[in-house]
């Protein structure tokens, strides 16, 4: 019976309460998802804190990796949003580290993937777009709406172009969140399906074990692919954040 449940590819996304909390009719329980958010933050913080605690002039491997991540995100933000964008460096850096660590932690067997839930990625996207809108309005006032009016467009086409721009702006949080969520979800389901084949086939005796080799190879290859996807999606999330922040800083096209 335990085999049947382990093979279920959706089961890994279930949320179970660890400490039930309910305030004002809202369920605010500390769940396995919350636990892995805490784990993500603790792992990422400890990595960055311990790696840099030596403050070596010539960095150790750990310190070098922390520095490389820092400089990588820094140059990414500077390239897409200019030096004015560096005020958002702490935000983009924590966003990148959080998503990356959550994605990578989710690859461990039995671990919960925080970013495989749409509400988490959507909340992060809304945070990004919220910062873009509020900062853009605070800095440029109504000038921020130049974002929707590209220069050099004939007046006849203007209403159409503005409509397209508005729709594309509104779809940003959706595409940003769905991209990360769907990648994580699909990857983990595929991984679980192939791993499940290995388990159920090897229960069928010698022939089954021989047949299980192929899905096992697939599972290994997919694990490597998922490792790539985990890092890539964190990068994509961060670089799109940088580009949206650039719109808040420089609304004119």
């Amino acid at each position: 019976m335990a085999t049947a449940d382990k093979v279920d590819p959706i089961h890994q996304f279930h949320i179970s309460k660890i400490v039930p909390i309910e305030i004002g009719g809202y369920d605010l329980s500390f769940t396995n998802s919350s636990l892995f958010m805490v784990a993500t933050v603790v792992v990422a913080s400890l990595f960055l804190y311990l790696a840099t605690s030596g403050r070596h002039l010539i960095p150790s491997r750990w310190q070098s990796s922390a520095e490389m991540t820092y400089e990588f995100v820094g140059s990414m933000l500077k390239d897409s949003a200019g030096s004015q964008g560096m005020r958002f460096f702490p935000f983009v850096f924590s966003l990148f580290m959080f998503v990356l660590t959550a994605n990578l932690l989710g690859l461990f067997p039995y671990f919960f993937t925080v970013t495989s839930h749409i509400i988490v990625t959507f909340a992060l996207s809304i945070l990004v777009i919220g910062i873009v809108v509020f900062y853009g309005l605070a800095k440029h006032g109504f000038g921020f709406f130049k974002l929707f009016v590209p220069s050099g467009v004939p007046l006849v086409l203007m209403p159409l172009v503005v409509a397209i721009e508005v729709v594309s702006f509104l779809s940003r949080p959706v595409s940003l969140s769905v991209r990360l969520f769907a990648n994580m979800l699909a990857g983990h389901i595929t991984l679980k399906v192939f791993a499940g084949f290995v388990v159920s086939l090897s229960a069928l005796g010698a022939v089954g074990i021989a047949g299980a080799i192929l899905p096992l190879i697939m599972a290994v290859a997919l694990t490597a692919l998922e490792l790539l996807v985990a890092a890539l999606q964190a990068y994509v999330f961060a670089i799109l954040t940088c580009m949206y922040l650039n719109d808040a800083l420089h609304p004119g096209h």
Binding site: I15, I21, Y26, D27, L28, S29, F30, T31, S33, S34, M37, V38, T40, V41, S94, F98, V114, H117, I119, V120, A123, L124
Partner: peptide, 11 residues
Amino acid sequence: SSQILWLAITF
């Protein structure tokens, strides 16, 4: 609701 709260706290 629980995920948003804990995400806000941890992040």
